[in-house]
Design a protein around this nucleic acid. Sequence first.
RNA 1: GGGCCACUAGCUCAGUUGGUUAGAGCAUCGCCUUGAUAAGGCGGGGGUCCGCGGUUCGAGUCCGUGGUGGCCCA
Length: 918
Amino acid sequence: MQRDYRDTLNLPKTAFPMKADLPKREPDRVAWWEAQRTYQRRLERNKQNGAWILHDGPPYANGHLHMGHFLNMVLKDMFVKIALLDGKWAEFIPGWDMHGLPIEFETLKHLKIKDFHAIDPIELRNKCKERALHWLDEQRSTRMRMGNFGEWQHPYRTIDPEFEATIVEALADLAQAGQIYKGLRSTLWCVHDETALAEAEIEYEQKVSPSIFVRFSADAQQRDEILRAMGVSAEHVPQKVSVIIWTTTPWTLPANVAIAFKPDAQYALYAHGDEAFIVAEELAPQTLGEHFGQFRKLGTVKGEALEGLSVRHPFMDRNSELVIADYVDLETGTGAVHTAPGHGADDFQTGLRYNLPILNPVDARGVFTAEAGPYAGMHIWKANPKIVEDLRESGALWNAFEYTHSYPHCWRCHNPVIFRATAQWFIAMDQNRLRARTIENLQDVTFTPDWGKNRMTQMLENHPEWCISRQRTWGTPIPAVICSACTESVLDPAVARIAAKHFREHGADTWWRDPVETFLPHGFTCPNCGGKAFEKEKNIVDIWFESGVTHLAVLGKNGIPWPSDVVLEGGDQYRGWFRSSVVTATAIKGSAPYKQIVKNGWVNDEHGRPMSKSLGTGIDAKDAMQKWGADVLRLWSASVEFVDDVRFGPNVVDQVSRVYRNIRNRVRFMLSNVDDLGRADVVPYAQMQWFDKLACDVTDDWVARVHGHLKAFRLHDAYLEIIRFEGDDLSSFYLDALKDRLYSSAAHSARRRSAQSAILHILTQFLTVTAPLLSFTAEEAWQSLPEALRGDRASVFDLTFAGSKHPNAASAQAWEKLKELRSWVAASEGRRDYELQAKLGLPQSWYDRFAPHLDDVREAMVVSALSLRANPSLEEPAVERELLAADGGKCKRCWKYLPLGADPRHPELCAPCAEIVG
RNA sequence: GGGCCACUAGCUCAGUUGGUUAGAGCAUCGCCUUGAUAAGGCGGGGGUCCGCGGUUCGAGUCCGUGGUGGCCCA
């Protein structure tokens, strides 16, 4: 009669399920953290330990969050939690960017309103606010669903009266410092709706335009200079020398002040009959037309050689300068580009570069002003044919066609739009050395990756003047006033400060609602003419300016220091928020608003292509969490090198899911072996078995290493270190070797309690280290631990990283030696593990260390018997190893090979098992 | 077109200042275990280190050049 001794063993037992069921379980955990106020309570405990602040760059509140958001937001959360578990007051105030055109746009579409002039500004602002709040709620719940900690009930919002006041105070500070001015800028303009348009309000449609080639001829002196520059002798050249330009917008010719050439292209002088022409060599055949063969080429020159020369305007009494510009191409036209800085974005930049007059002879309705000379009073579209006709009569017209092309139209009225220089507010980047000081301030900032500093420096160097005004409704008003007498526009610090006060108390609507006098200081007069009557200007501030002052709205108050310790955003923010923040901070506070910039990469699809909603490759963060669970995705975030661009897709998630399952199972195994451990059973370190002490020492070293990675934001290094440890040290070595002691020792024996206590220590440390990454699973495991073992640490986020200790070099060395010996046993073929006994000859030093712990070494090697002898002739690391069949028989209970039957009641058991069974 | 970045096994990544047969995890294949079992252990296969040229006794690593992809601009 054989007896089954299985029920006398202490087999693993736990309520922690093997199957994660993350999508189902995680939402409850989010609710639990909220109800327990886990984050807030830990913050309160940490308060006296000093602040560590990650300042949240505000996402835009106009849609669902995608995986790019997920990566960025979860990384932020991990950093915050790392600091939190380090004992820091890691207050995280999430924020949202809630003003701006995309929301206004979406709201207008939502309301089916095509012209924003057609709705009362206050009403439109209310509707926009509703939409923005709707998206804020949506995004907030998604961010919470990720398991992220933060002050979700008290976020910062750019639409809050307090925030709007901060924006306007920043404007006041800048105005006071002489940092703001009003200047011209090329704007897209609809002459039908009489309004400036944003890029997003443009639709491209086919349009038939006049396509004309126009002579710009040189006078005698100009001719000489041109021929000299081209190295052509004047005698064989006809008297009349012209540059031929091409345009499809004849109405912009009155504003022409220059002709742009491509610097490295070849231009040639062609003569035919009594005149000569300069055009790009490559475009000459099509420009000069069917008789091209009859033209004589008199010389060629690179475009850059023509810079600084000039020709006469065909009908205005002035010169047109010859300039060079990189954007000139040789696809169409003549290679000589008509340049009217008041009527084109490129032209405008060229105008600034050459300090050319920015002529703007067209009013808001599209009617020429007196500046347009002979065409004053005409509408531009009506003037087009008239100008062509006049050119033909004067002989300036070389050729004319009709031309069908794609041209920008107003999305509302579908009329063609124009470029028009308009007066806008700017931040002067070079006033008070702002640009230079901003770049200097970057020197104090730590960049991850470090090349970010270069990149940002370059961007600041090339930063055009920052235009901060927009002609829209959904935003914070720029509190400028216009003098009724002289039409001067004034942005006065005192007016702005009064406005800020009103905004703080009543919200920014007051600017649209209340009379101008509300905002004027007593006795305010126009600095230009002394006038006393004013109107409010109806411009709002660029949303990049709003997000650029979040550091003023959030930091430096409520115990939060200014500057922040770190900001973390995608690489596009070098040009965006990182830049706008440091510019305003430099201008207003004199230094950078952050100590460190960490950049995360772009999330592309599995083939490395950008995700796109329209291609159907975009993945919504909420959907992904519903499908795979937040924790698997959090692990994915740590598994990729987040600083670089990363790939995401089902196959990538599958892979990381398997890693997740491994981790989960090993945590489960540890939990299942401490299930019967009571608080009073826990063995202090000093009384543990030697092997268990080694395991604790090695774990502490590991925690210190991972902690180092985490603090330095090297999440991927931490990920690799975690996986290596739980696989290599725990699962395949320590925990595997411990099974015999855990299962077959007497439940209450000191040896078993020692092993359990070591596991408790390791598990606690493991959960501490993984909690910032696998927040849900770490918390779930912590809650599955017997309550007595949790003590007063109600949440896994009440744990703290083990204090820094010196590495346990001796323990680590012994540990590695044991692992090596165990690997040797494990790899044996045929007989294995307990079927074996080992005989080792060790160098004296190893013998001295191992001999006192003979049974622990035997246990680590997972053999039934071990004998050691010292061999002084061996040099470290040599070991004489011999594996033999174990003596004795297989104990029915513990499976080790030992002498059996000492107890006649249990003939199939070894002596220790027989005693336990009794 | 310009600036910046990336490119190492099927996938995610290591490879210190150039120095043996380029490593790990996951996947894959085979074996063992059946007292972590929708688990656990052991072992194997798999790479023109994006291409080309150069420096060097020696290059995944340094230099040049081309390609592919990404971000920001034009």
